[in-house]
Design a protein around this nucleic acid. Structure first.
Length: 885
DNA sequence: CTTGGGACGCTCT
DNA sequence: TAGAGCGTC
């Protein structure tokens, strides 16, 4: 395994569609979700710090509107915005604890992961998705009519270089009608070999944007979090684009717009050039903007910087970035650190041991969780520290191999490493005073190795359980080959179960964090019997839950009765009785436990029903019993949503498996997860599912009326009615616009040389469409040109270089076939968009209405009004989207 | 006590 | 490979 990043080949530089999903002020959103009462209020997250109200690390948009920014102190924020809510990052072990945000980030990533295998988590709140396959697939589907772009997905979409997304769509439609519209420009700017990709770029990015819309909708629906996204042909551009319209927006960076964008784009805006290197580049080249780099030759850049950086700069300045999206869900290392500035310098051995203990404790906890989730163990450890040596800050890091470990051994190893690498560790003559004060401490572990399932009982349990599930769910009517289905199934099941365990464990750990110095360690026991302390904790937790909620709810909390663990136990009990279990030891242990748990649950064994469809947001807090000694401010409750995310119902809904203990009626197949799976597994009914998925329920009742700004009539203030009315006005405007458009196109047609006409198979009924007029009108230049890449050479159908188009039966040059097929794609795109019924567009309008309006984004408003002003079924996409003037 | 404090990945030597 | 350092969020 080389550490070098993988890259795509230069030929494929425009072939990918890459998405960057970036959560909007993520920490704030996490706090808002956890405290619904804070919603719609200005809010900032501060790190605990007694000085001037703490340091602000995240600001929501309501607070930003008041001028609150990061790098401010809490007090300053209060001055600017007295009503601001300041949330503190929880403090555990006397240091900031960001696990809440890590968990939330993982929750989001779990949603993202369903859209592609090629998911790269770039940070806690950012991920790259290579959606090339999906886009390509949809290109094909569009030709068969199995997929249609949904305008409402594009309402929150921007395209760099275009006033509104409508103009971008307009451009695409026009180019489909006249595929070589921009070719002169293209041929000047791009290599001949790249032209096919360049011509396809816009439509593929547009489809990418529709995927992005779905991704973001799914994230919102399933986690409650909003995000922004960038859509481009590579990571650098996707990242750049994502930042251009926020929050809750997505931005396409069209290939052909990068050059002009770069002309005024400060170098530092490019990821990788934001720091020192970027400064050096600017100084060395005497430039400010990205576009100015193109003036330098590759060798020149290589000479000024180095070979690698030179080439990289050369390419990046042209919008080319070959770095692959490297699938990575889990981090390669786990670490934590803390600064000890000024008076807090560590000067004594005891203090050093204390802090090493705290850091080790956190590392250990996270390793336990990671072990359960990912079945891997760290084999390597690094301790980093900054010492004060003669008034100088000297940073060092030392590493060692990690075998079996627990908190104490991590402490011991790190201390030994520091000792061994410090000339004079203790002050001469002292037993406890450090010779060099420590200003910074960090421990990180990595080089993970997967634990083979043979030595791991917990893993066997999961494997067995997954195997049983597969048997239960024998005849799923899936489209995928059975083996593939099962493979996916197993992964999901195991993952979900592990997640549950992990989340559960974490919740328990947090409770005990302060009460108990050294917690039990599953890793230490991993090679032995099944995880006893784990099970004990589960029991403890169940007890606690029943105790605290029993009086109110009279039933076992949902997260227990529907947990994987619970399901698993039930299943185990059944199969155990049948005496057909793979691992007898396991089953015995588990059966014992199952009986014990049954006893705990015994007094509330009734109503095992209802609320299987509960929204995440509505989930009530899980009340854990707190250890006596725990201070209130350090107490952190398990995020109810995290727990909820892993309940049994979710699994079954998501995977489509009928759980052994639930009836079919209890499985309401109406969550977005379910729908998405249907979409993915069944192309044929994609559209139905999709439309259902895309259209929110409209409340048309109890709405006041509003005055039409054009005719003054009173209309119900409800989008559908409003729109219907406006359509009336629009229709008049439309006919005028259409006539002039068509006139213009005819004029253009006449100016060009008409070649052998090969009209598409059928003329369209679509009335009044400027683009469709190409198909209804006599063969015009543009289409003909499309069929003939080189007008001068006329090819007979018998020519071996010719192929018959399966769609329209015309004979096309092989090299032009892809583009020709694009043409049909375009036709379909247009047709499908035209057929969008009022309802979907109404929904889009509705959706846009409730999202925050950016004052500067005029174009968005225009798009909005244009959409609402259009009537259904008779116009081209361009007219649906673009401004009519 | 600093225009945030971690956390993580990458890369160069 | 280890260790130092950078960049980013």
């Amino acid at each position: 395994m080389s550490s070098a990043r993988s890259h795509v080949s230069m030929q494929n530089k425009y072939d990918r569609v890459v998405l960057l999903v970036d959560m909007d002020c993520f920490f704030c959103q996490v706090e808002e979700k956890q405290h619904p009462e804070y919603r719609n209020r200005p809010l900032a997250v501060v790190q605990y710090n007694p000085w001037r109200g703490g340091g602000i690390i995240a600001v929501n948009y309501a607070a930003r509107a008041k001028g609150v920014t990061r790098h401010m102190r809490g007090d300053e924020a209060k001055d600017l915005c007295p009503e601001i809510v300041l949330c503190q990052v929880p403090n555990i072990r006397e240091k900031a604890d960001t696990s809440k945000y890590r968990d939330a980030g993982k929750e989001v990533a779990n949603v993202l992961q369903r859209f592609t295998q090629l998911l790269e988590r770039a940070s806690v709140d950012e991920a790259y998705l290579d959606i090339t396959e999906t886009v390509n697939h949809r290109m094909q589907q569009m030709q068969s009519g199995a997929f249609a772009l949904q305008p409402q997905e594009l309402v929150n979409t921007f395209a760099v270089g275009y006033p509104s997304i409508g103009d971008y769509v307009n451009k695409i439609t026009n180019r489909f009608a006249n595929p070589y519209m921009d070719d002169e420009r293209y041929q000047m700017s791009y290599d001949q070999n790249d032209l096919p990709a360049v011509r396809q770029s816009d439509i593929r990015l547009l489809i990418g944007a529709s995927v992005a819309g779905e991704v973001r909708a799914a994230v919102k629906k399933e986690t409650g979090y909003e995000c922004s996204a960038g859509i481009a042909h590579n990571k650098i551009l996707a990242k750049l684009a994502a930042g251009m319209n926020k929050p809750n927006k997505q931005t396409i960076l069209p290939l052909t717009e990068t050059a002009s964008l770069f002309d005024s784009l400060p170098v530092g805006k490019i990821k990788g050039l934001g720091g020192k290197f970027g400064e050096v580049v600017c100084e060395t080249l005497g430039i400010k903007f990205m576009g100015q780099v193109v003036k330098f030759s590759e060798v020149d850049l290589q000479r000024k910087f180095d070979e690698k950086n030179g080439t990289w700069l050369f390419n990046i300045s042209r919008g080319i970035d070959l770095e692959a999206v490297t699938p990575r869900f889990y981090s390669k290392s786990i670490g934590c650190c803390k600064k000890f500035p000024g008076r807090n310098n560590i000067t004594g051995l005891k203090t050093l041991q204390h802090w090493l203990g705290e850091l080790s404790s956190e590392i250990n906890d996270r390793l336990e969780k990671d072990f359960i989730e990912n079945n891997r163990r760290a084999k390597h450890m690094v301790v980093q520290y900054v010492q004060d040596i003669d008034g100088e800050e000297v940073a060092s890091s030392r590493s060692t191999a990690l075998r079996d470990y627990d908190q104490e051994s991590i402490v011991r190893l790190s201390l030994d490493l520091i000792k061994a690498n410090t000339k004079t560790f203790l002050r001469p003559g002292s037993e406890s005073a450090l010779n060099n004060a420590i200003k910074f401490l960090g421990i990180s572990v990595g080089k993970f190795e997967t634990v083979s399932s043979g030595q791991n009982k917990l893993q066997e349990m999961f494997a067995n359980q997954a195997a049983k599930k597969r048997r239960v769910s024998g005849d799923e009517p899936g489209q995928l080959p059975k083996v593939e289905m099962e493979k996916k199934q197993k992964q999901t099941d195991e993952f979900k179960m592990k997640s549950f365990f992990a989340n559960y464990l974490q919740g328990a750990k947090k409770e005990d964090a302060k009460a108990d110095g050294i917690s039990a360690n599953p890793l230490a026991a991993a090679a032995g019997a099944p995880n006893k302390n784990f099970v004990e904790e589960y029991k403890h937790k169940l007890h606690a839950a029943v105790r605290t909620e029993g009086t109110v709810l009279t039933s076992t909390p949902a997260e227990f009765k529907e947990s994987f663990f619970s399901q698993y136990l039930k299943q185990q009990k059944k199969t155990g009785q049948q005496g057909s279990v793979t691992s007898r030891e396991d089953s015995l242990d588990v059966q014992e436990l199952a009986e014990e748990l049954d006893a705990i649950e015994a007094d509330n064994s009734k109503d095992f029903e209802e609320d299987t469809e509960e929204e995440t947001e509505l989930t009530s807090d899980t009340h854990m019993s707190k250890p006596e000694g725990q201070s209130s401010d350090a107490g952190q409750e398990q995020d109810p949503n995290t727990l909820n995310d892993s309940t049994g119902n979710d699994l079954y809904v998501e995977t489509g498996i009928v759980p052994p203990t639930l009836t079919e009626d209890e499985l309401k197949p109406s969550t977005s997860k379910r729908k998405f799976d249907e979409i993915e597994s069944s192309v044929s009914n994609y559209k139905e599912c999709y439309v259902e998925f895309a259209v929110p329920n409209l409340r048309t009742d109890i709405l006041p009326t509003i005055k039409c700004d054009q005719c003054g009539a009173n209309i119900p203030d409800e989008v559908k009615s409003l729109q219907t009315h406006r359509d009336h006005h629009f229709a008049q405007e439309l006919s005028r616009t259409l006539r002039s458009t068509e006139r213009e196109e005819r004029t253009q047609s006449r100016q060009k040389i008409s070649l052998k006409p090969t009209p598409p198979k059928k003329s369209k009924k679509t009335a009044g469409s400027g683009s469709s007029s190409y198909s209804t009108a006599p063969p015009s230049n543009s289409i003909t040109k499309f069929f003939r890449a080189k007008p001068t050479q006329e090819q007979a159908p018998s020519d071996p270089q010719m192929n018959q188009c399966p769609e329209c039966k015309a004979f096309i040059k092989c090299v032009d076939m892809p583009e020709h097929l694009d043409y049909h794609v375009a036709r379909n795109l247009q047709r499908e968009l035209n057929q969008q019924d009022l309802r979907t567009r109404t929904a889009a309008l509705n959706k846009e209405k409730i999202s925050p309006v950016q004052p500067k984004k005029q174009s968005q408003k225009k798009l909005n009004s244009t959409i609402s002003a259009s009537s259904s079924g008779t116009k081209t996409i361009a007219q649906f989207f673009s401004q009519s003037n």
